[in-house]
């Protein structure tokens, strides 16, 4: 399945990209994707799908548009 991943803020310097399409096996979970991006699991972050937060154990679906952001605090 194909998912589109947008990386936000300083995380782009960890992952090496800001937007990229991924071809993933079915039933891939959010945590699997984060591991694949090279973001340490302990690094605070928020992952959203269509503007809503998803959890590490949530399963991705074909066509998902995800954003991975650090935890901002509004300045």
């Amino acid at each position: 399945m194909k998912v589109q991943v947008k990386v936000i803020g300083p995380l782009i310097y960890k992952t090496g990209f800001s937007e990229k399409d991924f071809d993933l096996p079915p039933a891939t979970k959010v945590a699997d994707l984060i591991a694949r991006l090279g973001i340490p699991p302990e690094r605070p972050r928020i992952v959203t799908r269509n503007g809503k937060a998803v959890l590490p154990e949530d399963t991705l679906e074909d066509g998902d548009k995800l954003a991975v952001s650090p935890i901002y605090s509004g300045g």
């Binding site: 947008k6 936000i8 803020g9 300045g75």
Partner: peptide
């Protein structure tokens, strides 16, 4: 380690755009 000040608060913009 966090890299926060590379973009500092300007990094918030794409997050806000993403979550409407």
């Amino acid at each position: 380690e966090t890299g926060w000040s590379i973009q500092s608060t300007t990094g918030v913009l794409p997050f806000c755009n993403e979550v409407a």
